[in-house]
């Protein structure tokens, strides 16, 4: 479980994250949704320490991460897996080396154990046999999957995914979403997914925070979204005419 309490962040004199609080639950896929530029990535980067926090707390199972001494921070970091928007695979390493990278850096596993773990992770994201390809040789969806394999290689307790299905076709998106959801349940991780894909919201949104202009504007789950009265959220989620029809249909059923 990760709890954020009243976190804020400004870049220069622009307040980008404004007093946001939320609890991300273990074993669930927690979503952060919102328009682009609303501050979602910044919240994620504040949580993992890639940006320094102006005020507020980020509690990883009770430990306030920004205030931990460097050594303990390091320990928490090794429990974090992150899937970046573009994958962020290391270009100079093969798929297999990418996935093995955290194992090489942080574990005392033997070569066989590492190979076994790498192959398990790759098969888990349906990339078995692609061990020796370089990131440059992968399609967008394969890159995301390889990056997901790397993110889960070291058995993280916390998984962060920044727009895992941006730039993917709808079918591949669903595959990635389902993978994230299944892996989260399997490994009982605390998973946080940033998305503005409405399919994902409805499919995997067990707990949702809607960010509007840097603020926690609405919180709930996918069922709640369909019934919300929050104007900004309705405008965001049901931006297209088609989605609006679905919204009206659901509303009228009650």
């Amino acid at each position: 479980m990760i709890e954020i309490r009243n976190i804020s962040k400004s870049f220069g004199d622009r307040l980008v994250v404004n007093d946001v609080s939320f609890t991300f639950e273990q074993g669930k896929t927690n979503l952060i949704i919102g328009e682009s530029g609303s501050g979602k990535t910044t919240i994620l980067k504040l949580m993992v320490g890639l940006h320094s926090i102006d005020s507020g707390e980020v509690l990883y199972d009770g430990k306030n991460f920004p205030k931990l001494p460097e050594k303990e921070k390091q320990e928490v970091r090794q429990d974090i897996g992150m899937l970046f928007q573009g994958g962020a695979l290391f270009d100079s390493l093969t798929v297999e080396e990418n996935v093995r990278f955290p194992l090489d850096m942080f574990t005392a596993m033997s070569r066989e154990e590492k190979n076994e773990r790498v192959n398990f992770c790759l098969s888990r994201v349906q990339l078995e046999g692609r061990n020796n390809l370089y990131p440059g040789e992968l399609s967008g969806g394969m890159k995301k999957r390889a990056a997901l394999a790397r993110a889960i290689a070291n058995n993280p307790k916390y998984l962060f995914c920044d727009e895992p299905n941006s730039g993917l076709d709808p079918k591949t998106s669903i595959v990635i979403d389902q993978l994230i959801k299944q892996i989260t349940e399997e490994l009982n991780m605390t998973t946080i997914v940033i998305t503005h894909d409405m399919n994902s919201v409805i499919e995997i949104g067990q707990k949702i925070m809607y960010i509007y202009k840097g603020k926690n504007w609405w919180a709930g789950n996918s069922k709640g979204i369909l019934k919300t009265d929050n104007k900004e959220l309705i405008d965001f989620v049901f931006a297209s005419g088609f989605m609006k029809e679905i919204y009206d249909a659901v509303k009228n059923k009650d």
């Binding site: 890639l50 970091r77 090794q78 992150m82 962020a88 990278f101 850096m105 942080f106």
Partner: peptide, 12 residues
């Protein structure tokens, strides 16, 4: 391409 961020997150 955020590869440096990826290293930092891992605690490297």
């Amino acid at each position: 391409t955020e590869q440096i961020d990826a290293l930092e997150i891992m605690g490297i």
